Simulated assay, not measured.
Amino acid sequence: MNGDTAKPHIVFLVTEDWYFVSHRLSIAKAALAAGFRVTVVTRVSDCERVIREAGVDVCHLPGQRGGLNPFQQLAYCLKVHRLYRRLRPDIVHHVAMKPVIYGSIAARLAGVRNVVNALGGLGFVFTSSAPKARLLRPFVHGLLRIAMAGARTLLILQNRDDRQMLVEGRVIDEQRVRMIRGVGVDVGRYPEPTLRTDQCLVILPARLLRDKGVVEFAMAARQLKADGVVARFALVGAPDEQNPASLTSQEVDGWVREGFIEAWGWRDDMQQVVAQADLVCLPSYREGLPKALLEACAAGKAIVTTDTPGCREVVEHGENGLLVPVRDVDALAAALRTLIADPALRHCYGLNGRRLAQTQFSEHAALAASLAVYRELVPSR
């Protein structure tokens, strides 16, 4: 382990190393620059080198995000508890539902007082209408209340709808909620948008989950292709076998064989992918504050998304994109048709979105807000 042990120590608990790199590494770098020592506890796959090169220590924690086996969940909690006792963090920062619940319990058992819980969204249990999700919802709600019970526990949320749900549900007092609008985006990394009139490329950049609206996107693409609309429709992402809402590779392959969808798989060059797109679509059922839409704004791309928590935080209907009802294939197809047919309108929406990213969703502001939360708990830094 590297670093000065006299520095205040922040430990992130994140289920997957790739997610940490994508959504939290910039915050970790900012904490390092501000004088903290940083460790991430995560399941290591392919990103350990990138994390360590940034100056962050890594502790491998095997485990699966999915699954409901209570013995496996207890084992996960105990492993985290042992790591916290060994690492002796000044602050723990839990990201997403499973780390928030079990990490908070482990922190309390290990005597860690300062807890930051971050929910990018409320996940499968709260977004899905599947019987399993409805059955689990009261149980998870109760566990969240336990997780948020610590006097020095702060909760970071990304949109007002989630705050209202959790405060009115008595999960946490409003005074301990901190609103940070996503991880932010650096507009300077993206080229200025230009008016393009070539064949329109529409992308859906997300894990291939049903609650991301992937099926609705595919059905809208099929409908538009059948109506003679000339455009390309690409899924940029991969199935997530550990998520119960995941599509299968066979389903996606079937769409590709039919010829109305392209499947680009998981990509680590999203700046380039978004830059070559003409239109970004995310018909999700519910989000925290989707990074994919922030990147679309920064790149100056028009957006079609759903009028749902998280998504409507980023898109103002008729200004930088179009909002459609959740699970409505016809409305989604109509919105896509409108923007595919009108390059000038797409360009106008894209310019408006880029200004929005500069003024409301800057990476600098998001990082400063995160550091303010840490300093609230450890005032000396």
Rank of each mutant, 00 (worst) to 15 (best):
L143F: 13
R82Y: 14
P325L: 05
D211L: 14
A275H: 07
F260G: 05
D227A: 15
L83T: 04
L109V: 11
A335T: 10
V112Y: 02
Y374W: 02
F260R: 04
I101K: 06
G259D: 11
V230S: 03
G120S: 13
A31N: 05
A54V: 02
G103E: 01
V202M: 08
R134Q: 13
L25S: 02
V252T: 03
M1D: 15
V41Y: 00
L109F: 15
L155D: 07
V324R: 11
L339H: 12
A238Y: 12
R375C: 04
V41I: 06
V185T: 13
A30L: 02
R170K: 14
G188T: 01
R375F: 03
Y102M: 01
V187Q: 01
R152C: 08
T5W: 05
P62W: 02
I261V: 09
A277P: 12
A34S: 12
E16M: 12
V40G: 03
G228K: 15
L195N: 09
D161I: 13
S284C: 04
T359L: 01
T359G: 06
V324H: 14
P244D: 04
Q360D: 13
R375D: 03
N114G: 10
D268T: 15
L195E: 15
V56R: 06
L224D: 07
G55R: 08
M165W: 15
M97L: 15
R222A: 01
L166N: 07
S249F: 07
R145G: 01
L136S: 04
P8I: 03
Y76N: 06
Y374M: 00
G350N: 04
V314I: 12
Y190F: 15
E319A: 11
